[in-house]
Every structure is written in C-alpha cells, then in structure tokens.
C-alpha cells in the first residue's frame, strides 16, 4: 500500500496524469537518450529483412536475444577476467549459439540480408576468440545493420579462430539436415587449422557454401525419392547414374561461377543472376537438367546401364561429391 502511495505521488509531479501536452519534449529527449529509436529501428529492419511468418514472435526472440547479450556482456568483456577454463568455454559456446542464431535469420537467397547476418556472426565470434578486441566490435543492438557489411572488420587485425569457424560450419550443416558423414568431405575441404585466424572473406565463403550445400543435399534427397519407387526398395543403379550424370553435366555448364546454384524441386537451376554471362550459363544448365533431358537420360539408361541398385546414402554421397569437387578453396 505504501508502495502504491509512493508511486502515485511520484506520478503527479511528473505530469503523468495531469496532461500529456506538457511532456512531449521530455519524451523525445528521453527516447533519444535511451536510444529507443535505434533499438526499434534495428529490430524492425531485422524483421523486415527476415520476413518471418510470425513477426511478433520474431521480435520477442530478437529482444530476448539482445537482452541476453547485454546481460552477459559485463561479465564476458571484463578486462580483469582472464579466459580460464569452463567460464571461457561456456562463453564461447554462447557466442557460437548467438552467431548461429543470426545466420539462421535469413535464407541465403536473400543475399543482402544474409550477408549482413554473416557479418554480425563474424563479429560475435571474433569477440569470443579475441577478447581484447571486444571494444572495437560494435556491440550495440544495431551493430547488425552496419551500412558496410563487407570489408570493415579486417582493420582490427583479429579474426575468428579456425576452430570456431569449423565448429560453425559443422553446426550449419547439421542444422540444415545434412548427415555428418555427408558433410564431412566438404568440411575437410573448407577446413582451417584451429590456430589459424580466419579472415572475413573466407568465413563468408565457408558459411555460404555450407548453407547452399545443405539446400543442395536436401534437393538431391528429393531427387532420389523421385527416382526410386518407395515400395520397390532402392532405385536401380542405372537410373541413379543417369540422373547423377545429368546433374554433373548441369553443374559443369554452370561452372565458372560460384558453386551456389542449387537445384530446386523442378530440377531447374535456381540462381541469382549477377551478369548476363552467368545468366546464360544458368539457363543452359537448367536446360541440361530439365525434366525432358532427365527423362531421356533415364530412358536410355534403363535399357543399357549397369545392373544392381543404389541406396539413398550412396546417391547422396555421389551427389555431394559432385558439389564438393566444385567448391573453390579460398585462402
């Protein structure tokens, strides 16, 4: 009760019930001082970028995530606190989780949004790896919407450590539904030594490759499901080889660009067109893997291909192999 009285008496002098006309100036001042505008702008931009189906849920998660960042940062960035054992490890895990959360926000086909998020994730992991540089990294709520997503971070001279980078890629693949055995060869190819420092470009390339790879594997799993008849056990080897052959041809046609053309359910090459040359290549590639071509290849294979069956795993590995051999190694 006393509490209530106090609250009420506090309310009256500040003009809360007296009339709203008196206070707009102080309100605006308060909001700008507290950085509410920036906070909300950052949240809205993130939300519009991600186009979540559940915007309210998205905002709730977003602010919770930010709150957990700010709650933990005093402990995490304390200068006196040395990285010792379990504490540092737990904190690193926390940063990794947060980085993954950012990477999940937008699909890689929404390229600018995705690039922004990669930048944020990179900065987070960078802090985690090298605490002394915490001060250089934007830790504000809207560090995420930096205008210059690429190329700003190298100045610090730090970078994400190789171990964390590899861990991030592993998590991305497994979250993307790719079995560890399938993603292992890709990860070996993208691998960095634990002690190495990973520059932003390499990080972005790795993350993007894993994201595209996850999509690609999901599509090739669907492709296999199309080829095999579920009731008759595994698909015949000949048919699978024909499909893989067509896939390979298509990938070769589109080669020369980044390996980030993924195949959608209609077997057409899906790509973001960056130049006419690329566009033409993609069109050729998609023609190569059009249902028509595929049907021809499969028909031919039926009569004269090798016998035996191929199971889903083998098909997946073969498809993954086609992809992985085309992954550029950036250093």
């Amino acid at each position: 009760m006393a509490d209530k009285e106090k609250r009420r008496s506090a309310a009256i002098p500040s003009g809360m019930s007296a009339g709203k006309a008196i206070k707009p100036d102080s309100d605006v001042e308060f909001l700008s001082q507290a950085g509410v505008g920036d906070l909300l702008r950052g949240a809205l931009l993130k939300m519009v970028e991600a186009r979540s189906d559940d915007p309210i849920g998205f905002l709730a998660d977003h602010f919770c995530n930010l709150a957990s960042v700010t709650d933990s940062s005093p402990a995490g960035c304390g200068e006196d606190e040395q990285m010792n054992g379990a504490g540092a490890c737990a904190q690193e895990q926390q940063h990794l989780n947060r980085a993954l959360w950012h990477l999940r926000l937008a699909h890689h086909s929404q390229r600018s949004a995705f690039s922004n998020n990669v930048r944020v994730a990179y900065d987070l992991l960078n802090v985690s790896g090298c605490q002394r540089q915490a001060a250089e990294v934007p830790d504000g709520p809207d560090g995420s919407c930096s205008d210059d997503p690429i190329g700003a971070g190298e100045a610090g001279g730090g970078g994400v450590r190789g171990g964390l980078y590899t861990q991030t890629l592993q998590c991305l693949c497994s979250e993307g539904g790719v079995p560890a055995s399938t993603s292992a060869p890709l990860l070996r190819r993208l691998h960095c030594q634990d002690h190495e420092v990973v520059p932003y470009d390499v990080f972005r390339h790795g993350v993007l490759t894993c994201a595209v790879f996850s999509d690609y594997i999901r599509q090739s799993q669907k492709l296999y499901a199309e080829v095999c008849c579920p009731h008759e056990g595994p698909a015949t080897r000949a048919l699978c080889l024909a499909v893989l052959g067509t896939l390979k041809e298509a990938l070769e046609t589109s080669a020369g660009c980044e390996p980030d053309c993924c195949i959608n359910a209609n077997n057409k090459a899906y790509a973001c067109v960056e130049s006419n040359v690329k566009a033409i290549r993609y069109l050729e590639a998609s023609a190569k893997i059009s249902p028509n071509q595929l049907a021809q290849a499969m028909d031919g294979a039926r009569s004269r291909g090798p016998g035996g069956n191929m199971d889903a795993k083998e098909f997946e590995n073969a498809a993954a192999d086609l992809f992985i051999t085309r992954v550029k190694v950036v250093f």
């Binding site: 906070l39 949240a43 905002l59 919770c64």
Partner: peptide
C-alpha cells in the same frame, strides 16, 4: 513513456523483450 523510471531500471531491452513475449 508512462513508466519511464521503472522501466529504465528494469532495462530497456529487457522491457521490450518482456513486452513482445507477453504479446506472443
């Protein structure tokens, strides 16, 4: 704005997190 004092202590980000969680 109506409860500045309270919520500033509470933490602004925490406040927005609570608000949207309760809406959700």
């Amino acid at each position: 704005l109506e409860h500045k004092e309270e919520y500033t202590q509470f933490g602004l980000i925490r406040y927005f997190a609570e608000y949207f969680s309760s809406v959700k």
